[in-house]
Design a protein around this nucleic acid. Structure first.
Lengths: 108, 108
DNA sequence: GGCATATACCTGGAGGTACGAGGTATAGAG
DNA sequence: CTCTATACCTCGTACCTCCAGGTATATGCC
């Protein structure tokens, strides 16, 4: 049913190469603080996506520290399209039920 | 991050009293088959919601069989309002990111 | 020099969700 | 008399999510 963190990460990486720590903050910014993923969420997702061939990792030394930049592979782009479609199906269905024929909490 | 089944169940019960087996099919119908919850999802959620005081159960014999009808309590209505608000926050944030500044799979 | 903070990576364990598979029992159709 | 639909339920698994913790370097401050 879920997979929101995975989707957000794939989506942001579709625009440009980023590293883990950067993603944590980028998600916060992009969602207007509505979604905050800890590093403990982001890193495991990145590793799983790399493992499954959706991401390519590239180490880069920046001022002494090492950053691991991730970018989408072809498989990653395909994966992104799938999870987006799934999300839209779910979100659309939920919106339909929330609207309902009813009354309570219909608009916010 | 999730809680979609819980939300759907609360939302449908906000309109009228229903029993478990009925809910399984009502969700299928209401979402245009987009979401299909098995009984193994619905019943545990119903029990948990009753346990936490969000639902009231009422046994009713119908043509030999027994049905357990559930209806929302005041706490249930409050709970529904909360999960709807959470959902809208998440869904709104996701929509914003999916739209992004970017290109891929923006509209469907 | 020493200390706190920010950057940057990572893992582990716990908790909760979601789900398929299975198990019981009655009513009605063929 | 068997098979399907109705109607309830539980169990075990798998996965996701998360908090807390652990390592290490650069930088600014006293």
């Amino acid at each position: 049913m879920t997979g929101v963190p995975e989707m957000l990460i794939l989506r942001l990486l579709a625009e440009r190469e980023m590293y883990g720590y950067e993603l944590v903050q980028a998600i916060e910014v992009a969602t207007g603080e509505a979604i905050r993923l800890g590093e403990g969420v982001v890193y495991p997702v990145l590793h799983a996506l790399e493992e499954s061939g959706c991401l390519r990792a590239r180490r880069k030394a920046v001022s002494g520290r090492t950053r691991v930049y991730y970018s989408l592979t072809a498989a990653g782009k395909k994966r992104l399209a799938v999870v987006i479609q799934d999300w839209k199906r779910i979100a659309g269905a939920v919106a339909q039920v929330l609207k309902g024929a009813g009354d309570a909490a219909a608009s916010v």
